[in-house]
């Protein structure tokens, strides 16, 4: 599946959102990624957040806080985002396994410093924010109501190569 790193963003304003909240264990009995589609963020309890809501259905980017994706190693968490068209997460920090799973699947788990994350959350108070990521230039453009803000981000050479080659299986198969 081609990965798209732009579109409307949804803002999840909490630290430590875990993979059980992203995709509950009872759905781990599915053996295809597509079957996970209806259950994205089903167990996430957050003020003003509705896991069945239209905003979530339209979202293509998630913006969040610290330690996103902690807990279980289940790659079902990145997959449930992938099959819903969410290929970009922007957060202050991630759990290691979740972050690696995102890049291994050719998707983005971008880390921004706290002040940039705060600025994005503040921006979201003005209305719907759309985000466009330029992986090569390591730039994020966030726009809301005709106004835009730019952010630059760091990404390791390895993670960038994974995104550009389509993922770890492709990279490893070509090299080892």
């Amino acid at each position: 599946m081609e990965k798209i790193f732009k579109g409307p963003a949804i803002f999840l304003d909490r630290n430590d959102i875990n993979t059980d909240e992203i995709i509950p264990a009872k759905y781990l009995t599915e053996v295809t990624k597509e079957a996970l589609k209806p259950y994205m963020l089903e167990d996430l309890k957050l003020e003003g957040f509705d896991p069945r809501g239209e905003t979530l259905k339209n979202a293509r980017v998630v913006v969040t806080r610290e330690n996103f994706g902690c807990g279980s190693s289940r790659e079902h968490a990145p997959w449930v985002f992938e099959v819903n068209g969410v290929h970009t997460i922007i957060g202050q920090s991630y759990a290691r396994i979740f972050r690696q799973n995102m890049f291994n699947g050719g998707m983005l788990a971008i880390e921004l410093p706290k002040e940039d994350i705060d600025a994005l959350f503040a921006f979201s108070q003005q209305g719907e924010v759309t985000i466009d990521v330029d992986v090569e230039a390591q730039q994020i453009k966030a726009c809301c109501g005709g106004q835009c803000q730019d952010f630059s981000f760091e990404i390791s050479a390895f993670d960038k190569a994974l995104v550009q080659s389509g993922g770890w299986v492709e990279f490893a198969d070509a090299r080892y």
Binding site: P78, I97, N101, N104, W168, A172, D173
Partner: peptide, 14 residues
């Protein structure tokens, strides 16, 4: 280390 399914897949293959 715990890993995801893609790391596991590459582990199995390579």
């Amino acid at each position: 280390a715990g890993v995801g399914t893609t790391d596991l897949e590459v582990g199995i293959l390579k």
